[in-house]
Simulated scan of single mutants.
Amino acid sequence: MSTTQSERLRGLLEPLVAAKDLDLEEIDVSRAGRRGVLRVVVDSDEGVELDTCAELSRAISEKLDASDVMGEDEYVLEVSSPGADRPLSEHRHYVRATGRLAKLTLHEDGELIARILGVDDEGLDLEVPGVKGRKPTARRVTFAEIAKARVELEFNRKDKKEEEA
């Protein structure tokens, strides 16, 4: 996708996404056979409902039909939330992952799997699970130390609502 098209799409779509109180996480244009595919990924602190994606998809479709930003070729529009395994790259991603288990690849210390307990402007407060019956330990990691991060899927994780009850 050309920078010009990317900038034009972002300028066109950001107001529509913001009107739904969502963050525009990603715009991707690719080819699938003869058709183009426009993927729009949105998120919020509360998550994204399927109905919200459908409403936003209709609004985006109308806006794109009224513009020439996608050109004359046929394209498929996909509007979705990021999914559970998306990378954590923005401050807001870490905030939204508070309480979740994350796999962090550090620039100097290898990999670390820990629960995110808190996030501030400089980094993360983590709880590293204990090994072989040992108690968990606290650890502080700055954003500068993190090369990559991703939420780990937990199938037996207690939901926040269960913990509050």
Rank of each mutant, 00 (worst) to 15 (best):
S2R: 13
T3S: 09
R8C: 10
R8G: 01
R8S: 09
R8Y: 01
G11S: 05
G11E: 09
E14A: 13
E14R: 11
E14T: 11
P15Y: 00
A18H: 13
A19C: 09
D21V: 07
L22N: 04
L22P: 07
D23R: 09
E26P: 02
E26K: 11
E26G: 05
D28L: 12
D28C: 14
D28A: 14
A32D: 12
G33I: 15
R35G: 04
R35L: 07
R35F: 02
G36Y: 03
V37H: 00
L38A: 08
L38F: 09
R39I: 14
V42H: 00
D45V: 10
E46F: 01
E46I: 01
E46M: 07
V48P: 06
E49D: 10
L50M: 07
L50Q: 01
T52Y: 00
C53Y: 06
E55Q: 08
L56R: 08
R58V: 09
A59V: 14
A59T: 04
I60M: 13
E62Y: 11
K63F: 07
L64K: 04
D65I: 09
D65Y: 05
A66C: 05
S67A: 14
D68K: 03
V69P: 05
G71P: 08
D73Q: 07
E74R: 09
E74V: 03
Y75I: 15
Y75T: 12
E78W: 08
V79G: 00
S81N: 05
P82V: 08
P82I: 12
P82C: 10
P82Y: 04
P82M: 09
G83C: 15
G83P: 15
A84H: 05
A84G: 03
A84T: 10
A84W: 13
D85V: 12
R86A: 08
R86S: 07
P87T: 06
P87V: 09
S89C: 02
S89E: 06
H91W: 13
R92E: 15
H93S: 08
V95I: 12
R96T: 02
A97G: 11
A97R: 00
R100I: 06
A102G: 05
L106T: 02
L106E: 01
H107K: 13
H107Y: 07
D109E: 15
E111A: 12
E111D: 09
E111H: 09
R115A: 04
R115Y: 06
I116Y: 02
V119Y: 02
V119C: 06
V119H: 06
V119F: 05
V119I: 03
D120W: 07
E122D: 12
G123L: 13
D125P: 02
L126M: 11
L126D: 10
E127A: 11
E127P: 05
K132C: 07
G133H: 00
G133R: 00
P136N: 05
P136W: 15
T137Y: 14
T137V: 15
R139L: 15
R139P: 10
V141G: 01
T142R: 07
T142S: 11
T142L: 15
A144E: 14
A144W: 00
E145I: 13
E145Q: 06
A149T: 08
E152D: 03
L153A: 12
E154F: 10
F155C: 10
N156Q: 12
R157A: 12
R157I: 10
K158N: 00
K158G: 02
D159P: 00
K160N: 12
K160F: 03
K161Y: 11
K161F: 15
E162N: 04
E164C: 04
A165L: 14
A165S: 10
